[in-house]
Amino acid sequence: MTKQDALHPLQLRINGENYQLNVPANRTLVDVLRHDIGLTGTKETCSVGVCGACTVLVDGEMIASCITLAVTVFNAEITTIEGLDKDGPLHPVQESFINNGGFQCGACTSGQVLAAKSLLDHNPTPSEIEIKEWMMGNLCRCTGYYQIIESVVKAVASTRHHDNPNA
């Protein structure tokens, strides 16, 4: 329980690192990530949980960080876009978005890439229809959907090739 006007203690594990914070109870997760921690790769655009830009993964599952109260996140591993190339090279999805023109202005890109990563983690060989169904909730106002889907399709192909160089 916390007193009103008092800060709420918050422990988060983000991209494999532990953070101890004191935040107002009404802080959203996206604000904690961007403003309190400085992980500005997560973007907020619609602010009502519709567009997918603020997607982060909590224990591997996509959530909308703009409508998540930070203090309700408990005992969970958060992955943000900054976590994908933490150990060095870009994630295959990131490589594919670059190579296939998968973004224009970039506002939706962190969410698109995390959504695609989450898909590949759940299903390493999705069909194009499965990709479209999964990515349906990530909006792109530059209307680059063909390139986004192509980027995911080719990321799937590249990871399959990587797993089995003789395929």
Binding site: M1, T2, K3, Q4, D5, H8, P24, A25, N26, T28, L69, V71, T72, F74
Partner: peptide
């Protein structure tokens, strides 16, 4: 958002 107190039963 307005200010509030959060409880974690």
């Amino acid at each position: 958002m307005h200010d509030f107190t959060v409880h974690h039963p």
